[in-house]
Design a protein around this nucleic acid. Structure first.
Length: 291
DNA sequence: ACCCAGGCTATCC
DNA sequence: GGATAGCATGGG
């Protein structure tokens, strides 16, 4: 990977395994929107970014080298060696296909608080609607960001959300998840759960702590840890993976425990990343074939 | 109009 | 302990 500044933009070249459409389309992020062409725009960690990709380069608009190092290098996991990760995951024919299909997928390193709220909202919900609700929360409680015509706002901080009630959230269309988000906000705002402490807690205990929040079960806790704490070993046991493990890997009477054991055995410390390739491949292909 | 969505909780046995 | 209905809302 190489990068340089040019006309106030940051141009990245010789970057392997990076496809913005896949990265933002694989269900890990709800805040970047397709602007047409190969351009996506969104907000992460309070900063707005327009990102564009062509055959040879990735262009971060209005970003300096400093900005890349301070924020986006980490967000896009550019310090992770995806050649090595992919070779470790390439353990069978079905996964091989998923790796080919998701050639440019990377697991983003996103804000833990935002992942907590976003994945509570994700349960029994479809992705377009999750995006819409998250955006509404940002529009209502987040802060304005300078220099952006679409008026993207930040994901609200804990302080900006701490006075929210269940009724407020119902107004925004969260449905029965309103009470869950309210519980999460209270537990964090009142200090019952310390997210910074959670980052240094082992995965098993962190999972239990997260599951103490109403509306956070195993799958949601795992997504929070995978996307918000880069716990790459955590493999969220969702409906798609369940289906794959049954149909492609021949596991009968699949349940969460069996799923974890299989993922652990096959993909070890990158089982969570493996899950993302499987999820993306299966979901995208079912879109085109079934409908 | 109908089925379903990156599940979880309460309640049943 | 393990199984299953019900859940708010709206996208496709």
């Amino acid at each position: 990977m190489k990068y340089k500044e040019s006309d106030g933009n940051l141009i990245i070249s010789e970057l392997r395994h990076f496809d913005i459409a896949q990265i933002f389309g694989c269900g890990q992020n709800f805040r970047f929107e397709h602007q047409g062409g190969n351009v996506f725009k969104g907000v992460a960690f309070g900063e707005v970014l327009t990102i564009e990709q062509n055959e040879n380069n990735v262009i971060l608009h209005d970003i300096s080298e400093q900005g890349l190092r301070d924020r986006w290098l980490n967000f896009f996991a550019l310090d992770e060696d995806y050649d090595q990760i992919r070779s470790m995951l390439d353990t069978d024919e079905f996964m091989h296909r998923a790796l080919e299909y998701g050639m440019g997928i990377r697991i983003l390193k996103q804000d833990l608080w935002e992942m907590l709220i976003s994945f509570i909202i994700s349960q029994n919900n479809n992705i377009p609607r999750i995006r819409k609700i998250v955006r509404t929360i940002c529009d209502t409680y987040g802060s304005a960001i300078a220099n952006n015509a679409q008026q993207f706002r930040t994901f609200p901080t804990i302080e900006q959300m701490e006075r929210i009630t269940c009724e407020d959230l119902l107004q925004l269309g969260l449905g029965y998840r309103a009470a869950y988000v309210e519980d999460a906000v209270k537990k964090i705002a009142w200090g019952e759960i310390d997210l910074n402490k959670l980052r240094r807690t082992n995965t098993c205990d962190a999972r239990q702590t997260l599951m103490g929040i109403k509306g956070v079960g195993g799958k949601v806790a795992d997504c929070i840890m995978l996307f918000g704490m880069s716990r790459y070993e955590v493999c969220p046991h969702d409906v798609w993976v369940k289906r794959i493990f049954t149909e492609k890997y021949g596991i009968e009477h699949i349940d969460e425990k069996k799923g974890y054991l299989l993922a652990e055995a096959k993909w070890g410390k990158y089982a969570g990343i493996a899950q993302q390739f499987l999820f993306y491949c299966e979901r995208e292909n079912s879109k085109t074939s079934a409908k």
